[in-house]
């Protein structure tokens, strides 16, 4: 038993291999995610950065088996603690979701059932613990609410979601997610709907909880600042392709892919004091139907050469724990 646990300690929690997702529509196949490989080590925070249309939500939905095979063509492998997620039955998936893997979403209002009190929501989610008494479930709920910083949790159990502010609701969502003691938490833009000061508090909370519970987190965001705040590893997604991934310090201090570089240059927080001209990446993200051959970023890249228009660059290591999918990046 103990040796098995020892082995699992360093095995990745989530392993995505060559995952592609295409939606079949009237105009042909729309490719949303192409050939993405990603590993989430235990107890680490992996950030997925991408702008709108980068396929970040599709990627995590597919990785959790949330996309039906009837509507989409999914190829590749997704393994959660060694178990193949893509070939699981709906029943097996349900057993994993909510306990082993939990999710928090962008909009904490729609994620909570408005007709149920917080207490009911928090005890219902423990339905799998059959032997546990109601009082015990309530006690656990209160403890978890206190943990996520809800003041006076006992008396708030009878309140309904609409009686809480956006930040408080997101805290409740986090508390609900953590009740199952998940080994993987997926956070899809959890602070986008919140104000800056609340965002800072939620990030702070997630960091603290991550230390306390040693949960692995996949953190999806378009905000580079937030990614830099909380992640250990970063994967940069552009139009469904993984263009660069590596340790957070490498990505922010030694970016190799032109898209990552341009994205960092565009962040207004990094601008010098006096600017007359705001940097931008001209052009638009290629649509899911008109993807170019060769490099996905070629149309907006100022380094694009002939090879970029013909050959799609593979993800190559550029230094230890850092890889970029660019012909122009220096490999090792």
């Amino acid at each position: 038993m103990s040796s098995k646990m020892e082995m699992e300690k360093n095995a990745p929690v989530l392993e995505i291999n060559n995952l592609s997702v295409g939606f079949n529509g009237a105009r042909g196949q729309a490719i949303a995610v192409k050939d993405v490989s990603l590993t989430v080590p235990p107890g680490k925070v992996v950030g997925i950065v991408g702008e709108s249309g980068s396929g970040k939500t599709t990627l995590i939905s597919a990785a959790l088996g949330l996309i039906s095979r009837q509507t989409a063509e999914i190829t590749g492998k997704v393994k959660f603690e060694g178990r193949d997620i893509l070939n699981m039955s709906e029943r097996e998936l349900r057993a994993i979701r909510g306990t082993d893997i939990a999710m928090i979403f962008q909009d904490p209002m729609t994620a909570l059932n408005p007709s149920m009190s917080i207490g009911t929501l928090m005890t219902d989610i423990q339905y799998r613990d059959r032997g546990v008494s109601m009082t015990e479930k309530r006690r656990k709920a209160v403890e978890m609410l206190r943990h996520v910083g809800i003041p006076d949790p006992e008396s708030r159990l009878t309140q309904y979601p609409h009686e809480f502010s956006g930040g408080m609701r997101q805290r409740i969502c986090i508390a609900m997610a953590l009740l199952g003691q998940p080994r993987l938490l997926i956070a899809d833009e959890p602070t986008t709907a919140l104000d800056v000061t609340m965002e800072a508090q939620i990030i702070h909370l997630l960091r603290k909880l991550q230390r306390d519970f040693h949960t692995s987190i996949v953190f999806v965001s378009h905000n580079l600042g937030i990614i830099a705040e909380i992640c250990d590893y970063v994967a940069v997604l552009y139009a469904g392709c993984l263009v660069e991934q590596g340790e957070v310090d490498h990505i922010f201090h030694n970016p190799q892919h032109p898209y990552t570089k341009a994205l960092l240059a565009c962040d207004p927080a990094l601008l010098p004091e006096q600017v007359t001209d705001f940097p931008a990446i001209p052009g638009e993200v290629p649509g899911p139907f008109d993807r170019p051959t060769g490099c996905i970023f070629q149309a907006r890249c100022n380094l694009a050469a002939d090879i970029c228009r013909q050959v799609s660059p593979p993800l190559r290591p550029v230094e230890a724990n850092h890889a970029a999918a660019c012909h122009m990046a220096k490999g090792i």
Partner: peptide
């Protein structure tokens, strides 16, 4: 507080 709450895109300068 508002300005200090802003996330800064640099992992070496975490709040």
């Amino acid at each position: 507080g508002l300005f200090s709450a802003q996330p800064y895109p640099d992992p070496r300068r975490r709040r």
